[in-house]
Design a binder for these strands. Structure first.
Lengths: 208, 208
DNA sequence: TAGATTGTTAATCGATTAACAATC
DNA sequence: TAGATTGTTAATCGATTAACAATC
């Protein structure tokens, strides 16, 4: 089956499966059935098997899945069998926290550039990178061939910065600004906004 | 129509609509059609009208929606017409960044408690709150009647901390730990993990 | 072999889209 | 009034679930 035909909602679940498989591997488990995995994830065995079947048969009837092998296959499918270099734009609290977040390095994500406009932070060291002036963005990003950006600038600056990232040939943006970005079709955006998540939760809290 | 019957996926879109409506209000607009709003959001007019229709008719045929009135109604639906007090557990980089995040205060979210285990940070001031020892969690959270928690502890501690929050009568958890939490049915969890978002994006980047 | 569990097909369920009468 | 746009119903589309033959 061609990759292009796999529903996006299936793709979105694979990293989640992978996370739990990695945890299980650390626990010393070697084999898992779709049922066991489903229980850990709070989903159904049928869904896991269906999702995996878009990419082939990774298990053995009667036995389940080799955790090690399934991790390897999922990493290949998701293009995680390499290190990805990422640029962070915005060196505020959040941008700095993300830049030296241990969980990135541990999972093959390397922050190699960090930009801001504020002269007070430009030149300062954050983890292993130095904050650069945003005027250098296009040049640096393009010359390093970086395809993934994390955006942590204020709402007002978000669209303009996204436009500049697109100019610099970035193809994927993880947007922390509370704004819906407009980008060309071939650029992918994921939006993280804790306020939206909290407001979603508040609906269910009713009149407590 | 009873609230309980509105699909969760509809609820999840309301905060997103609200965000853009607020931006439009700031821009000085007074009225919006489902078509205009859809274009701004990158969705369809039909979906917006369908979603809103679960809660009633907020527009006028031929005219569209009063932005001010629609904001008011969405806030009521989502229970945002009050201030919500929130506890943050974990005073690492991320926990501290979230605790003094301006975007929370601006949208009615008040961080009033911050806990950690590390003696080095306990007693220190973060924004307007002081880091307390996690042993005080149940007592403080329960006595203040706090229903929403943000979890930024390390993966290993996440499940245990979630259990304690449930003990303290918390009903909604925003989980930043890279772990799938197991909680009672009546507790709602939302998961934020930038690594999962980035891995999702990487699938589409292919072999760049 | 017998038991367990996969991979896959068919059935069900739910969400999105299209269309249009109602109405401002 | 004529034009625009809502609210809603019906049609379509897609995702989830159930079931089971294949097979380890």
């Amino acid at each position: 089956m061609t990759e292009g035909t796999v529903p996006d909602i299936v793709i979105s679940r694979l990293p989640w499966y992978l996370q739990t498989l990695n945890t299980m591997a650390k626990e010393g488990l070697h084999t898992v059935s779709s049922n066991m995995l489903a229980e850990r994830l709070g989903t159904t065995a049928a869904q896991i098997r269906k999702d995996l079947s878009f990419f082939g048969g990774f298990g053995k009837q009667g036995m389940g899945y080799s955790i090690y092998y399934l991790i390897e296959q999922l990493q290949k499918i998701l293009n995680l069998d390499r290190i990805w270099q990422v640029v962070v734009v915005g060196a505020g609290d959040l941008g700095r926290a993300l830049t030296h977040y241990q969980g990135f390095a541990a999972r093959g994500i390397e922050i190699v550039l960090l930009f801001d406009v504020d002269p007070k932070v430009i030149g300062s060291q954050v983890g292993s990178v130095v904050v650069q002036h945003i005027d250098l963005l296009e040049e640096e990003v393009q010359s390093m061939g970086i395809k993934i950006a994390i955006l942590t600038v204020p709402a007002e600056a978000a669209q303009l910065t996204a436009d500049r990232l697109v100019q610099a040939d970035v193809e994927a943006i993880l947007n922390y600004a509370p704004v819906t970005l407009i980008v060309p079709e071939d650029v992918r955006v994921q939006h993280i906004d804790p306020v939206l998540n909290l407001q979603h939760l508040m609906y269910y809290l009713g009149d407590d």
